[in-house]
Nucleic acid binder design. Sequence first.
DNA 1: TTTTCAATTAATAATAATTATTATTTACGA
DNA 2: TCGTAAATAATAATTATTATTAATTGAAAA
Lengths: 142, 142
Amino acid sequence: MNLALIKEKITNCGLKFTHQRMVIFLALTKSESHPSAEQVYEEIKGSNPSISIATVYKTLDSFVQAGLLRKTIDQNGVMRFDSKLDAHSHLYCKTSHEIRDYENEKLEKLLQDFIESNDFDGYEIDEINVVFKGHKREKTIN
Amino acid sequence: MNLALIKEKITNCGLKFTHQRMVIFLALTKSESHPSAEQVYEEIKGSNPSISIATVYKTLDSFVQAGLLRKTIDQNGVMRFDSKLDAHSHLYCKTSHEIRDYENEKLEKLLQDFIESNDFDGYEIDEINVVFKGHKREKTIN
DNA sequence: TTTTCAATTAATAATAATTATTATTTACGA
DNA sequence: TCGTAAATAATAATTATTATTAATTGAAAA
């Protein structure tokens, strides 16, 4: 993702383009591990020492409001941010607390069909969250 | 669920039987809404004014450790407790934050089959979490 | 039944993640 | 370039939860 495209994404949703927003958005798109606000802060503060942790929280939240990011909450109640917007599920490692995307078209289709063909007792479902939880297997040494 | 059975459940997993544990466990089995620790506390403190909120947290946690309850975390990062132990999914109302059980054997079978017949990139999956999120429909007035 | 003692509890302090406040700074249209 | 509303940095406040500790209690042993 190039800088011009990020600028476009930010301005297109009515947000002012700032250096902080650029840096934070970039950190998210580069990360594979669905970082927390704290982790984003740690990632960027080396090259942006004057940035405030409150700005990171605020910016991530405004990106979520604008639909540029998604937010989930992990086992420990910590907010985690996801730059992938299309329907997908997640893998969660109970040991490392790492969250990774799990992309499987068949599964998403299955779930979408399930929502459409079932009744949810007076609920209008607009989102489905699937998390596969477990442990990353140790790599066996041959 | 009668009191003798609750006592048995508590002692069977190596926990001392106390009045506080009885009351807290009872509150959970009676509730349909997957209450938070705070909500359990509010529920029981009328008839148990000397109970401490810390005891509620501690007790709920020891029940989870013992496998008598399950714990999830809601959209707001608040811990919610569930006395239903068999495989089931959840409905979450984004407006009221109510969590309700969603029981559908076909869905659980579908998911179990999916886990068994797919590879999870080095993850050993031992739990699957499905939450259908949306809004409870207003009841239409005729 | 009484004694004993580790487990449990109540009270409260501490912590961690997040949000609110506010004075200052900045992006951007006029 | 200027004016201004929006954004930021610094930090205080909040909220849910956990840790600490002294007092209490359940239940096993005497």
